[in-house]
Design a protein around this nucleic acid. Sequence first.
DNA 1: GAAGATTCTGGACACTCGTCCAGAAACGGC
DNA 2: GCCGTTTCTGGACGAGTGTCCAGAATCTTC
Lengths: 205, 205
Amino acid sequence: MIASARERRHAARRDALADAAIETLQSLGYAHTSLRDIARRTGLSLGRLHYYFADRNALIGYCVRRYKARFIAAIEQAIGGATQPRVVAARVVAALAASIRDNAETHRLWYDIRGQAMFDPALVEVVDEVETALIAITTLVTGRLGLDRALALSIYLAMDGHYRYAMQRHLDGDAQIVLAFERLATEALARFLPDEVRMDHDAHV
Amino acid sequence: MIASARERRHAARRDALADAAIETLQSLGYAHTSLRDIARRTGLSLGRLHYYFADRNALIGYCVRRYKARFIAAIEQAIGGATQPRVVAARVVAALAASIRDNAETHRLWYDIRGQAMFDPALVEVVDEVETALIAITTLVTGRLGLDRALALSIYLAMDGHYRYAMQRHLDGDAQIVLAFERLATEALARFLPDEVRMDHDAHV
DNA sequence: GAAGATTCTGGACACTCGTCCAGAAACGGC
DNA sequence: GCCGTTTCTGGACGAGTGTCCAGAATCTTC
C-alpha cells in the first residue's frame, strides 16, 4: 500500500511530535508526565497531542518504540561485521557503557515503562514487543559469540541486570560505576563462554 | 531509648496502616495509587494517613521497606542452615519461584518503586537501602555456595534479571514461566561455580 | 476561487489530587 | 473527674488531570 504524500506528511508530523514528547517523558517519567507537561514543554497544543494520538498511553507507547528502535540500531551498528567473540563482546559492552554515560536519562524510561506494564494492560503489548526485539539482538550477539542461541535469554537477562544497576547508580552520582560496569558486564559475558574460549578471552581482558 | 507504651502503640498502628496500604499499592502501582484510593480501600480516613506519614512518598517508602524485609526474611528462612552448595542453590531458587507463583502481584511493586527512584530523589534512599539488603542476602548465599563474596553483586544482578522477567511473564499469563525460571535460575547460579563443583552440580540437576 | 478535507487550537467538562487544619473524639496520668 | 495530650475526622484549598469538541485555520483538488 503506497501512502499518499499527505499520509506520509501526517506520519512524519506524528513522529516529530513523539520525538519532541520523549524529552518530557524521559525527564519526568511515566507517573509524573501529564499531557499538559508535554504540551507546555514542546510548545505544541494539547489538542494536537490528542489529534495524533488516541490517548496518553498511545503516545507513551509510541515514544518508547521509537527510542528503543534507535537504541537497538545503535547496538547493531556498534557490532558491525565483527565475528570474533572477543571483539563482539568488547563492542557490545562499550556501546552499552557509552549509552549509560551519554544517555542514562533517556534509558531510564524503558525501565519505567517496563515496570508500568505490570500494572497497566495497555502497555503490555509495546513492552513485550520491545523486549522481544532486545532478546533478538541478544540472540544475534549470542551467535557472534559462537554460542548456542538457546543461551540468548539468559545472556539478555544477565546483561540487562547489570545495565539497569549501572545506569541507576550512574544517575545517583556514582562516578565509578560505568567503568565497573564494563568490567562486570565483560565478566558476565565471559561466564557463558566455554572454558577453552573463556581462558583465551580472559587472557585478553 | 526505651519506648513508652504509647509510643509502641503508635508505632504498631503506623505499621498496621502501612500493611493495609500495601494491598492498594501492589494492586494499582505507584503511578495510579492516590492517598484517597488507599483511604477508600482500607476504610481509613485520609486525615489518618497524613497523621502517620509526612507525605505520600513517606508512606510508600515505608510500605516497601516492610514488605522487602519480609521477603528477605523468607529467603533467609528458606536457606536455613544449609551449607552444601547444591542444597543452598535449590532452596534459593525454590523460594524465589514460590514467591513468583504465590505473590507476583506483591513483588512487582519493588520493580515499580525501584524504577521510580530514577525519577524521584525522595525514593532514592529507601531503594538504595533495600537493594543493599538484597545484595547482602545474596552475599550470604554466595558464601554458602562456597564462592568468593566478590561475586555477590554479579550473582544478585543475574538472579534479579531472571526473577523480574519470570514474574512479568507470569503476570502476563505465561503458565510455563515459573518452571522455566527454576531451570534458568539454577543454570545461572551454576555458571558461577568453579568447573569441578559445576560438573558435580550439573550431575545432580 | 470554492469546496471539502485535514490540521490545529483552546475552552470546557467532570472529575481528581496532595496537603492542610480546626475541631471532635479518645486516651492516659494525676 | 479533670486536664493535657494524642488520635482521628472530614471539609476545604488550590491546584491539576485526560478527554472532548466546536470552530478557526490551513491545505489540496478541481
